[in-house]
């Protein structure tokens, strides 16, 4: 059993935002909803690095655990999807998510939230694959067509890659070997755990 992952190579990403617009394009994501974003650290100074972030499709996903109506689930590929029909827009998944992935359209007065929207790994939702209903709610289901998420497929420098965890690991390992240095610490196999002490740890080495 594999697991679908995204990986963004900090040494390649140039903040071109192709992933962001590819996502908007493929899934007709409305203005104001950013399923994917590119964050630049040390902007404008040496050490500047950019990284593209969206839902990381965690295996032990906090959003799955917190959802009051239990509509967030894993697919067989380890993709975290949700059923918008059951979403009540409470915002809890956003509070729980370490990566700020869930997005909400503003509906009604007082900024009250509409149904949560997030990266689907281009795998649509619970509806029939590539049905009009699925497309309108979640966007394209590329996985069902045997294609990978468009953001990664269109990445200008191939910084963002997506696919089976083992293959992604191999590709990145090969890159690190070739270039002779890692983009920022030997963190590839790093895990994000809650067993040993409550919160996820970025920086914890295995």
């Amino acid at each position: 059993m594999g697991k679908m992952v995204f990986h963004c190579d900090g040494d390649r990403c140039i903040e071109c935002n192709a992933c962001v617009t590819a996502c908007k394009n493929e899934n007709e994501v409305p203005w104001g909803i950013n399923r994917r974003r590119v964050v630049t650290l040390n902007d404008g100074v040496p050490g500047e690095k950019s990284i593209s972030v969206a839902c990381m499709h965690c295996s032990d996903a906090p959003c799955v655990n917190v959802c009051p109506t239990n509509v967030i689930y894993h697919t067989e590929d380890g993709v975290v999807l949700h059923n918008k029909d059951g979403c009540i827009g409470c915002g809890y998944c956003f509070y729980a998510c370490p990566f700020g992935a869930p997005q909400y359209p503003q509906e009604g007065n007082f900024g009250s939230r509409g149904k949560m929207d997030k990266c689907t790994f281009c795998a649509g939702g619970p509806e029939e694959a590539n049905s009009a209903e699925e497309f309108n709610k979640y966007g394209r289901n590329r996985l069902a067509e045997g294609k990978l998420p468009l953001c990664a497929e269109m990445c200008s420098t191939k910084a963002l890659i997506a696919g089976d965890a083992d293959e992604i690991a191999d590709i990145f390992r090969q890159r690190v070997v070739e270039r002779g240095f890692d983009s920022g610490g030997y963190g590839f196999q790093q895990k994000f755990g809650q067993q040993s002490g409550g919160g996820p740890r970025a920086g914890q080495k295995l």
């Binding site: 996985l143 045997g146 294609k147 293959e167 890159r175």
Partner: peptide
């Protein structure tokens, strides 16, 4: 359903990932 093996074979992963390899 697309089984995983077929899926990966079909997908662009090799392309996307190894393009610079």
């Amino acid at each position: 359903a697309v089984d995983r093996r077929t899926f990966l074979r079909r997908s662009g992963i090799a392309a996307g990932g190894a393009a610079l390899g």
